[in-house]
């Protein structure tokens, strides 16, 4: 088990290297120069070409691409994420203030997705072919296909502008005012978890139906067990094995979704920071931000793979 985890972590490091390299190159391939964007912010002042070259040297952008990447990697290993070109602030500080906000919404969305997705899926499977199953299945298909930001805008229109029940956008720290914070979180969490709930519902439903037709479920019925015991003890644990895979994927999807949703709801999190930095070609922030997300995804995948063993005793790690 320990050997397995160590091997997986080493593999994770390789994945992270590839991700950072890919993001690094992709940023350099985008047309546009971050310094030009930086310079264009100041309408009153004009920069001489010498000053711009000076800035270019300051940010190390005058060096060759391999050198830039190696320097950046070295800084990261020393715990230095660099300095934002556009905002001029320390990237580590920026991420440390924005990440908790995204994690706050992300964790809530993840818990909501896991809980609702599994429950809906189980109910659908138990009521297979009944109207409830049909309704939820149709809703799940809609949930998978509609864009979350569009739903976000519709929700805003309905609950904020028309009914005035919820604030349109913004973020209140839970430490500041929990009730306000949760109220403001309702719509973003719905948007962030919509796809995940739908995907998990579908996966849970099909996994449950698969398990229900297994021989050991017939054995359980032949023992005279209650339906509740058969579902809870004999069926769900078996059905969870494929569901866990999908659940693990949601961590990455929710983080990815936060880029859109935080922009729509004007939430000062990692997602919006990344989106803005992407538009302004703020290399350091995009590179460090994607690295943080990649670390979270790699670790969550590892947790998923380890948790298989808890659900399925046949799985051995070696």
């Amino acid at each position: 088990m320990t050997a397995y985890i160590i091997r997986r972590l080493l593999l994770g490091v390789i994945i992270l290297l590839l991700v950072t390299l890919l993001v690094f190159l992709a940023m350099r391939l985008l047309p546009g120069d971050p310094l030009m964007i930086f310079v264009s912010q100041f309408q009153t002042e004009s920069f001489t070409p010498e000053q711009i070259e000076e800035l270019r040297r300051e940010f190390g952008l005058d060096r060759s691409l391999p050198m830039q990447y190696i320097n950046w990697l070295g800084d990261i290993l020393r715990g230095d994420m660099g300095k934002s070109i556009i905002m001029g602030q320390d990237v580590g500080y920026l991420i440390s203030t924005r990440l908790p906000v995204t994690v706050y919404f992300g964790v809530m969305s993840f818990v909501v997705s896991a809980f609702l997705g599994v429950i809906f899926g189980v109910i659908c499977a138990l009521r297979r072919g009944k109207w409830l199953d049909s309704v939820v299945t149709v809703l799940a298909n809609i949930g998978i296909t509609v864009p979350a930001f569009w739903i976000g805008i519709l929700l805003m229109y309905l609950f904020s502008l028309t009914l005035h029940w919820l604030p349109t956008s913004g973020y209140v720290a839970p430490t500041e005012n929990l009730a306000q914070s949760l109220r403001a979180a309702i719509m973003p969490v719905i948007c962030l978890s919509l796809f995940s709930v739908a995907a998990l519902t579908r996966q849970t439903r099909s996994a449950m139906l698969e398990v229900v037709s297994q021989d050991y479920i017939r054995t359980a019925w032949a023992k005279g067990l209650r339906e509740r015991v058969i579902v809870l003890r004999h069926t769900i644990k078996n059905a969870m094995i494929p569901v866990i895979t999908i659940l693990g994927l949601q961590v990455g999807l929710i983080f990815g979704g936060s880029v859109l949703i935080e922009t729509v709801f004007n939430i000062p999190g990692m997602g919006r920071l990344l989106a803005n930095s992407l538009f302004s070609h703020d290399y350091q922030i995009v590179q460090a931000g994607t690295l943080v997300i990649a670390v979270v995804v790699v670790l969550s995948n590892l947790i998923v793979d380890i948790s298989y063993g808890w659900f399925d005793p046949r799985i051995r790690y070696g």
């Binding site: 050991y216 359980a220 023992k223 644990k237």
Partner: peptide, 22 residues
């Protein structure tokens, strides 16, 4: 249910799949 497993019990064909793997 009070009959099944208590008064009339059953053994099935496939021993490999008739017991719950988890």
């Amino acid at each position: 249910r009070a009959i099944r497993g208590a008064k009339i019990a059953m053994i099935f064909q496939e021993p490999m799949t008739s017991l719950n793997p988890v």
